[in-house]
Simulated scan of single mutants.
Amino acid sequence: MTLRVTFLSPAPGPALREARFAGADDGEAGDGAGPIDPAGELRARAAASAVPDAGRHLSGPSQRCLRTARALGVRPVPEPVLHDWDMGRWRGRRLAEVSAGEPEGVAAWLGDPAAAPHGGESLHGLLGRVGGWLDSLAGADGASEGDGRVLVVAEPAVVRAAVVHAVALPPAAFWRLDVAPLSLVALTGRAGRWNLTLGAPLPGSGGAAARA
């Protein structure tokens, strides 16, 4: 069966607004900042009526994804393999801070897809993890039930990795993709043959003008 896998990125929160790497659980451990803020939750609730229909609902395991899904009126099954990019010891820190303190490490992270100067997951690791999940989706138990439509609330890095894998882009293309909060990215097809629909904002979510 042909699948339509629609990724929906979560509502914005402090980590996004502060250009900060997500913490152990989107900021809940450490500084007390929640994974999505009230403005982000309001945007998600306003867009709830526009969430596309699907026979199966999945979500990344983070509180940011799960709370966004609840605000949208979706009750997904958490998928552990779709966790956010593991930034190791950079988790919870601002990009500007890390760049100032570890410029060589940041340069390696941006320039070498096999590098993991933070001690977490390399870009190659992220692409392999997400790509392997995407390729196995049609063969997973229940994945092909109903009409083949799957809705996945997933972190932007996961969505970008899925796109890079699905359309066989070079790893460096990951850095040229931008996934806005509460936007849709759809992949239609099957393993090895996917068509891509990019970034349509949910009506009522605020669109590109409300991204910051």
Rank of each mutant, 00 (worst) to 15 (best):
L8K: 09
L3Q: 14
V158Q: 02
A209F: 02
E97W: 02
P76D: 03
W175M: 11
R129A: 10
G125V: 10
G92F: 06
A24F: 12
R56T: 09
L177R: 03
G60C: 07
E155Y: 05
L187R: 04
L169K: 06
D112C: 03
V159L: 07
A180D: 06
S49A: 15
P12Y: 07
L3I: 05
W133A: 00
W133M: 01
A100E: 09
G105W: 01
R89A: 09
W85P: 00
E145C: 04
G111W: 03
P10Y: 01
L134D: 02
V98T: 12
A143I: 11
M1I: 11
P78I: 08
P201K: 00
R160A: 02
V98E: 12
R70Y: 09
A46C: 14
V164G: 04
E79K: 08
A186F: 03
A69D: 09
A116H: 07
L16A: 15
D147I: 09
W109T: 02
L123M: 13
S9G: 03
G132D: 05
A44L: 06
A212G: 13
A173G: 07
L66N: 04
R176C: 12
F7S: 01
L169F: 08
N195A: 13
L8M: 04
A191K: 08
G128I: 07
A140P: 02
A19S: 12
A100T: 01
R176I: 06
L123R: 11
G189S: 07
I36Q: 00
P117C: 08
P117A: 06
D135S: 13
P181E: 01
P52Q: 05
T68V: 00
A44M: 06
H124S: 15
R129W: 04
P52R: 03
T197I: 10
R91W: 02
D84A: 14
A69Q: 03
W109G: 04
H118A: 14
G13T: 05
R67L: 13
V5H: 08
T197A: 15
G34K: 09
D84H: 14
G55H: 07
P201D: 01
R45G: 01
G192V: 03
S183H: 15
G204D: 04
H124N: 14
V130M: 11
L169R: 12
N195R: 15
D25S: 10
E79C: 12
L127K: 00
T188A: 12
P14G: 13
R20F: 10
E104I: 05
V167L: 11
T6H: 03
S59P: 08
R4W: 11
R70H: 13
L72T: 05
A100Q: 12
P12D: 05
A172K: 08
